[in-house]
Design a protein around this nucleic acid. Structure first.
Lengths: 342, 342
DNA sequence: CTGAAAGCGCTTACAG
DNA sequence: CTGAAAGCGCTTACAG
């Protein structure tokens, strides 16, 4: 019926008959089975046949047999949060190194019910799932557990869920606040992330620790919780700027919120850094181009993604995981922080 | 050996034996085969058995049989370009609506060779691939074609490749430049995208058309090509600001470059919009919080993603596709554009 | 040691 | 009309 014949795909059988061996031999040559011993000449014949026919094993058929998908999932709340770009990059590279595919998805973005999503991923589509951010709920973990899909929380902890890999967000916060204290600031505020977010809790804990270490008091009015968005950051900063007296320095929980914070400071008629210093977590490319260029703490985010995938792929599903990425972390000082005027 | 028995997964056979029917009946009930007629009571027994056992079909086994993966790929050059967040969101939602999975990947990000990537996706892992941005090369298209993996170019055209869905970038450019002209600007420059990018070509064409429509000349010195990054945008803007006289308005090809352009204008001692007006393509959330808030052209990016997936899923692979998304497009006027001072 | 055969979990053309 | 059987393309335990 069709003008183009639609040539049949090349299978193991085709290779076997061209090389004049059994299909199992081809399969074993391909997988490098050490227990196969055939003459080198035979091996070569198989390889030539594979080459000649352009044979590639069918991953679906292989998966059905081996019960391994050679694929992993990564669930993130929102593709527009730029920090996930780095996490994805790291995880994707690690997946490729193992010859696997990474399927990154966003629950909210796709309008999924968590249940649907698990149904889609479960039943053999992936060998495991990385769960990042607010989408990683206890309910989701329970469902994956029930379906026996290995999972791992990425920079997030959850009560009763003992598999997570995190960054040292508390230390990052300590670095940021320490910098502000060294500049002479005494009224140091914190524009925190959403209280239910684990990263927000750890950054806040670091803030409190650094404030106390400087011999200062943690004051409720200097602690404003927002979400991790620019809009939230702007609202939170407006609150802080309305205080009397306002803080002279603000540690912001992420860059998106910091973008909003810089905006709100301007609208309140305050100059950064002359009137108020601002520092945020994660050194995204954007930071350098803001007005003023934003001082940040650079964290090994790409490594986080890579290591998470590695751990997910190699740790038995019943084992606990609690790893903190040790990679480098540094303060990147730009124009948004300055000494407290005498 | 293990303390946890690892209960066997529930298969079609389990459901069939519980419901006391043949496996084919279960399969047909599940797929809603209209040619199956059994008593409603039997149908109910099957449904109850499915419910009771918590049965979910194995997608791998189904794929092997049907030769459909119920999955699509989306290849983007870079997760950190925020415009892709919207495209992904649209495509993901469309995939979910069809009960399919979307695997979004970045060639460069993962350090893939294109060939490897195609190998991974080819051979039945996906039912088709959406190709976006600079990664979509002729070579890649050829490989997919050879493997008979349906493909579709997303907001990109390529010589000899007659399957693409695009936005009307030319009209977007016309809107932006028209706005500048209406404000009285005569020396209107264009910070263009990379010359090889199809979107950059179309935006540039729109710029030239609008400039001519205003009775002005297209001048080479007012046309600077950069990449789509903030760093590139900063470098290009520095060039424009060094002209004598400099342009009084600049149409920037994307928001990332515009962020850099605003930065470079400041560094050159020029105020936006007093000395120079700036307008860019794509209304990202970030735009509102820049200094000054950026005037943009809003385009139906999410729709682009959704429609692309829909077309890929429903159009026979041998058919040509050349669709322009008709969705709404509008100028979002903020603080970065102002009338030319008299 | 090696190759033939079973089987992963489905769907669907086809025999009864 | 309906159910039993073949088969998708692999891998690997096992018989010879």
């Amino acid at each position: 019926m069709s003008a183009r014949p639609g040539r049949r795909r090349v299978t193991l059988t085709d290779v076997a008959s061209l090389a004049q061996v059994d299909r199992s031999v081809v399969s074993r040559v391909l997988s490098g089975d050490p227990r196969l011993n055939v003459r080198e000449e035979t091996r070569d014949r198989v390889r030539r046949a594979i080459e000649q026919l352009g044979y590639r094993p069918d991953p679906i058929a292989r998966s059905l047999r081996t019960r391994r998908a050679e694929a992993f999932g990564l669930l993130i709340p929102d593709f527009s949060n730029p920090v996930y770009a780095s996490i994805i990059k790291g995880a994707e590279a690690a997946a490729v190194r193992r010859g696997c595919v990474l399927m990154t998805g966003s629950l909210a973005g796709a309008g999924y019910e968590p249940r649907q999503y698990v149904d889609v991923l479960g039943r053999g589509r992936v060998d495991g799932v990385l769960l990042a951010g607010a989408d990683a709920t206890g309910e989701l973990v329970d469902q994956l557990q029930r379906l026996e899909v290995p999972w791992l929380l990425l920079n997030r902890r959850l009560p009763g869920a003992h598999r997570h890999v995190t960054l040292d967000d508390e230390r990052a916060a300590t670095l940021a606040v320490g910098h502000l204290v060294e500049l002479g600031h005494r009224r140091v505020a914190h524009l925190a992330g959403p209280p239910e977010a684990d990263t927000a809790q750890r950054r806040r804990a670091g803030y409190e620790r650094a404030v106390r270490a400087a011999g200062l008091q943690v004051r409720d009015d200097l602690l404003v919780a927002t979400d991790y968005t620019s809009t939230g950051g702007a609202a939170g900063m407006a609150e802080l700027m309305a205080l009397d007296p306002p803080p002279t320095a603000v540690f912001v929980a992420n860059v998106a919120a910091a973008v909003g914070a810089l905006y709100a400071a301007r609208r309140a008629g305050r100059s950064v850094p002359e009137d108020v210093s601002v520092v945020a977590v994660h050194d995204l490319p954007l930071a350098a181009y803001l007005e003023p260029p934003l001082t940040t703490v650079r964290m090994p985010v790409e490594e986080l993604g890579a290591r998470a995938l590695e751990l997910l792929a190699t740790t038995p599903p019943e084992s606990d995981i609690a790893e903190v990425i040790a990679g480098p972390m540094e303060l990147v000082i730009r124009g948004s922080t300055a000494p407290l005027p005498a």
